[in-house]
Amino acid sequence: MSECHVVRESLPLLLAESLDPASRETAHRHIETCAACGEEWLSFKDTWQILGALPAVAVPARARERFLDEVMPRQQAVVVPFHRRPVVRWVAQAAGVVLVAGAAYFTGHRAAPLRLFSQPATVAALRPLVGAQPVYSIAETRVLPATAVSPNIEGRPDIQHVQFVDADPSDGQIGVAFDLTSHVTVTGSPTDKSMVRLLSYVLQNEEKTSPARSQAIDWVRQTYSQPQYANTEIAQALAGILRNEQREGVRIRAVDTLQKLPARVTSNGEVTRDALIDALKNDPNPSVRIKAVEALSKMAGSGQALDAEAVDSLRQKVAQGDENLYVRVKAAEALSKIHQQ
């Protein structure tokens, strides 16, 4: 290979200032002495400069939102997997849990996740409340501030006897008490990430928790329908119930709560919006459809984002001859909210 060819192939590297010093020196010497390569160098330089005139284009803002929307639910799914109610529920699986999160608590750091491991336990089908000993063993009672617990819940712990604690509604603190092998109460602000995760977990893993999911939804509504505690993750957990729960009564509670949440929360991300649209389109219970369309209407009325699919679903709903007339009228009203802005 001729020296000219070697030098010419190195010209882009020279332009990018990426040649090692020795090669750079050699190349420059050659260019100075070889007219043809000198001319090539100048024209390459010109071209390199022209290429620089291509300006960088800003990434559309929606792309960021779209990415984060897709990633956050994924995160939730990984950390706290949702499973449909199995045929044989958790009690039959006879799983108990040992809490070993103490390290995080006692060291005062929240770096360590709440680690939970399964061990056998039994629960009787009939459990009189009076005079009966609980079937679980309370080795000790712990109160953990939510700030000391990692928001990552590992494994799928069998949290039982979940109770919502709000001793003083005015202090901005709530608590969730539950039994593992210890009786644990996690307390903190409703906005604390660990508290949100815990409640989302309780909502989405009914087969792993008790009492019933519908009760958990009521707790969530009490707190998170207040604007200052509005939370997207809670909305997404409710959306998951709306989409996956087989019992109509529970779905009604879920959508009723969603409808009461501030619109900016329900419309933040496609998960909730899509669940509402699906409910509007397909839920056999007319009350679920009414509440879904009312939630969408609230989103529209508050200027929050609805996508083209939502708009088309509302249009189709208005035109759907066999739909309950009230639902159709509500769908039309939801569409008209765009107009009012």
Partner: peptide
Amino acid sequence: DADANSIRSDFNGLSIRREPAGSGKTRI
């Protein structure tokens, strides 16, 4: 799922029976 569902009462004096109800169901 007979292990999952239960009747709980604060009152004494109730007698409990469990029996199969067909189709894999249990009546309590």
